[in-house]
């Protein structure tokens, strides 16, 4: 197996609230590794801490504690203090391409910035390189002089992807890159992303709440619930035998059309209630308030990660050895 590129170790992020001893525990001690060339899906509801994790990997937030190690280098520091080589190697595609592209700059200028900052090509080859980047995401060179407002949502996201690719990164963080787009263009964006991943051998940390999307693209999937990872497994394993009751609940909520898919799907489990507040986290297992199989024990003790099958980890009392 390829080497570990990104190692996230006991990562925590607590945001202070107005009350002194109360914290929003957005990310509460998670462990995750991403191998070279691997697509890892980080799935969870709103408020599960998946975006906070992405922002810590990017360096927009400094972690409260824990470590992020990228190619052997500790990068659990704010982006400002990171060396340029790290910035070059980790890039992000934001959720909403409407706000991630400067409305006053042309596509050419937007793509030129990373090239210039990292001295990717000499100035005279700048235009050719920009055209090549546009070509990589399937846009013609005419886009160079266009402003983002004249583009559609899908085209904007393609430009954002091209910008992220400009520095030739080895890890791309994708923060729900399709959720702000029309369904009609989502598939195109996903296809572009996956083709590029194969061509360039990048690793993806793919943040999403769309389980059905993950089935098709991810190598491994991690499920987050209230700041903790509750289940990690290879994608194939994951959909065949989901272990955690929360995962089963998520999977049963995917609408399916084909009969074959119907059989794969766990029995419908009605989701009960909303995700609790990360300020006031339930005692014991965080999921016990919504879990159909919760026992008394679940309220008392927090479960730890156990490897149930090969490389299939789950954090649930039901699978205690």
């Amino acid at each position: 197996m390829a080497e570990d590129m990104l190692i996230i170790k006991d990562l925590k992020k607590y945001f202070p609230t107005e009350k002194k001893d109360l914290y929003v525990r957005a990310v509460d001690s998670i462990n995750l590794t991403i191998k070279k060339g691997e697509v890892v899906g980080l799935v969870g509801e709103s408020g599960s801490g998946k975006s906070t994790t992405a922002y810590m990997v990017m360096g927009s937030y400094a972690p409260t504690s824990g470590k992020i190690i990228f190619n052997g280098q500790d990068i659990s520091i704010p982006a400002k203090k990171r060396p340029l080589t790290i910035k070059k190697n980790i890039q992000i595609v934001f959720q909403d391409p409407g706000t991630s592209l400067n409305p006053q700059r042309t596509v050419g200028q937007i793509l030129g910035l990373p090239l210039r900052v990292h001295h990717i090509v000499p100035n005279k080859d700048m235009n050719d390189r920009i055209i090549k980047l546009l070509d990589m995401v399937g846009l013609s060179e005419d886009y160079m002089y266009k402003y983002p407002r004249t583009l559609g949502g899908g085209e904007r996201q393609l430009v954002a992807i091209a910008r992220a690719l400009a520095t030739d990164p080895s890890l791309l963080v994708l923060d729900e890159p399709t959720s702000a787009l029309d369904v009609s263009v989502q598939a195109k964006i996903i296809n572009t992303l996956m083709n590029l991943q194969k061509q360039l051998g990048m690793s993806y940390l793919f943040i999403t709440h769309d389980m059905s999307l993950m089935r098709n693209i991810a190598d491994r999937i991690a499920i987050m619930y209230l700041g903790k990872i509750v289940e990690i497994a290879a994608a194939t394993d994951f959909f065949q035998r989901p272990l955690h009751p929360y995962t089963q609940m998520l999977l049963s909520s995917i609408p399916v059309v084909l009969k074959a898919e119907q059989e794969l799907k766990p029995k419908r489990i009605r989701s009960q209630g909303e995700i609790p507040s990360p300020v006031n986290i339930p005692s014991g297992c965080r999921f016990h308030t919504r879990c159909p199989q919760a026992g008394e024990y679940c309220m008392k003790e927090e479960p730890s990660m156990v490897e149930v099958f090969n490389q299939h980890f789950v954090s649930c009392h039901l699978y205690k050895k």
């Binding site: 927009s60 400002k80 910035k87 706000t99 991630s100 700059r105 910035l113 900052v117």
Partner: peptide, 28 residues
């Protein structure tokens, strides 16, 4: 706080670039 400023920061653009090329044109 806009994402395009964040993006420029994450790319590693200089402060002067962010002030004059990313923020200023939007204030004009």
């Amino acid at each position: 706080n806009e994402f395009y400023i964040q993006s420029a920061e994450l790319i590693g653009a200089s402060r002067l670039h962010i002030l004059l090329r990313e923020i200023l044109p939007n204030c004009l």
